[in-house]
Structures are given as C-alpha cells and as structure tokens.
Design a protein around this nucleic acid. Structure first.
Length: 268
DNA sequence: CAGTTCGCCTGGGGGC
DNA sequence: TGCCCCCAGGCGAACT
C-alpha cells in the first residue's frame, strides 16, 4: 500500500525511464480509473513528458501544457513494457509512448488518474505541507489542530495537515513518539509535537532511502519489489512482542483504520 | 463546521 | 476441495 516513500520510489524509477517521451495514444480499459477520461485522452495525446515529480501521495507527470496526476491508492502500480508484450491482468490504462508502453495496473481499481492544466491549484486545496517542508513546525501543527478533537492517528492520516502519511507510517510515528494512537490531539504538549515532526521525518526519510517498504502486494514500477521490510515496529505485528519491552502489541480500530500499538510504551 | 460512516474493489485467508 | 464471509485501506460523498 503505497505511502509517500513508495510513491517517491516509483517517481524516481519512472523519471529514468519515460521522461522526454511523447504520448502517442491512450488505451482505457476501466473507465473509472480516469476521472475526466474524454478530456484526458483528447488533451494528452501528442504531448511530451517533461518532468515527473511528487506531491504527497500524488505522482505528477508534467507534460507540455498540463499534468497527469496519478494516485496509486492501495495497489496501483506501473509497468513499463515493450509494445508487443501482452497486457497484464488488472491493467486499466495504457499510455503508448515512443519506445514503450506504460501500463497502469491496479487490482482493487481504487487508483485514479486525472489530467489538469492547474495541478498546483488542484493539489493545494487537498494537501498540507510536505513532511520535509521547513515550514512544518510546532506552530503549524498547533494551528492545524486548533478547534479539532480527533485522535493523534486520525490527525496524522489527514492529508490536509501533512501530506503523504498512510496507515503504516502513522502507526510507526505514534510508536516512535511513545504516544497511544488514540490520544486526543488536544492533550499533546509542545514537546510531543516536536517529537511528532522528528518521528515523521526520520521514519519517512529512512523509508525513502530504503526504496519504500514492501508490505503485501506492493511493487514499484518495472515490477521491482521493494527491497525489504523496513524496520517496522508495530504495523501488522499485533500480538507480537514489542521491540522495546516485549509486551504483546494490541490491535484496535481508530477512525475505521486498524491500528497496532504497545500498551506499555505508548501512553495516552 | 467537524466528525463519522459508507462505498468503491479484488484476492487472500480463516472457518467449516 | 469448495464455499462463504471477513479483511485490507485512501479518499470522496453522504451523512449526523
């Protein structure tokens, strides 16, 4: 399930493979994958891929006039293949390029693509700061949490606060902060928020360095599986011993999401 | 307005 | 072996 580090890994691989190529045609096999398919197909054909960047969990394929925004959601992935190769099962969109085809493949069909000429405007209303933005400080988080009463974990998953954190890393961040994921954000001290920023940056940057964690079915573009399971302390480890105190980890549900935490190390 | 729940999807796994 | 049901989860829509 791609979160920011996995998306960054995909962006870096795509960048080396398809920048500079022209989109000659689009095959759409599952219409809902492209939100504005008629406009999308009409506009992207004959445009060149100039750069590929990332904002939050969105991949930005920047063309001459506009941008293809891609959200992988849970299982979206790209494959770069020879034009003659057979289409994979679960491929929903194919971009036909100069020397290859780019297949967007997504078992669960949750992934989305959209073409827009105002990508920054589109993203700015959905997304908060990047985890590594120098403006991400205690003051910013205090302001964002003002008048809100949600659990710490729910707050971390809110893309309009910090963009890019998903269910794996939100649990990991809470663990590193030594805070119960259900802690009300109103109870967090300045020191807690400082720890939150630190934990977020350490965990996400080391995950990027590792090439994205490989959990379940996640594979990056080219079908390359993520290198290894990055130092995961709590996610998916319910009933297993805490890496610090060996107490069995507890699984619960917070804001409709499964959450795992250590009942001893993580205080409310 | 803020918070909560539901629907979108498929494959894997547990129970029987 | 086969069938049913539950689960995974990001996000937008529809609710309270």
């Amino acid at each position: 399930m791609p979160e920011l580090p996995e998306v960054e890994t995909v962006v870096r691989i795509l960048r080396t493979q398809i920048v500079g190529q022209v989109i000659h045609n689009v095959t759409l096999l599952w219409p809902k994958t492209i939100e504005n398919s008629e406009f999308f197909i009409q506009e992207v054909i004959h445009q060149k891929i100039n750069t590929i960047t990332r904002r939050g969990k969105y991949i930005m394929i920047n063309l001459d006039k506009g941008t293809i925004l891609v959200h992988l959601r849970m299982e979206g992935k790209f494959f770069i293949k020879e034009e003659s190769e057979p289409i994979f099962k679960h491929t929903h969109v194919i971009l036909h390029l100069d020397s290859c085809k780019l297949e967007f493949n997504d078992t669960r069909k949750f992934g989305r693509m959209i073409y827009t000429e105002n990508a920054n405007d589109y993203l700015i209303q959905k997304l908060g700061l990047e985890p590594f933005d120098s403006q991400l400080d205690v003051k910013y988080l205090k302001e964002k949490s003002k008048n809100r009463k949600v659990a710490l974990k729910t707050f971390l998953l809110d893309q309009s606060v910090i963009a890019g954190i998903g269910n794996i890393y939100s649990d990991e961040i809470c663990f590193m902060m030594k805070k119960h994921p259900n802690t009300s954000i109103q109870r967090l001290t300045k020191k807690d928020w400082q720890n939150c920023i630190h934990a977020t940056q350490v965990i996400l940057s080391s995950a990027i360095e590792a090439g994205g964690s490989s959990v379940r079915s996640y594979t990056s573009s080219l079908g390359v599986t993520g290198l290894f399971q990055l130092n995961i302390h709590v996610y998916g480890r319910s009933n297993k011993p805490c890496h610090i105190c060996e107490t069995p980890l507890i699984k619960t549900v917070i804001g409709q999401r499964s959450s795992v935490y250590c009942p001893i190390c993580q205080k409310r």
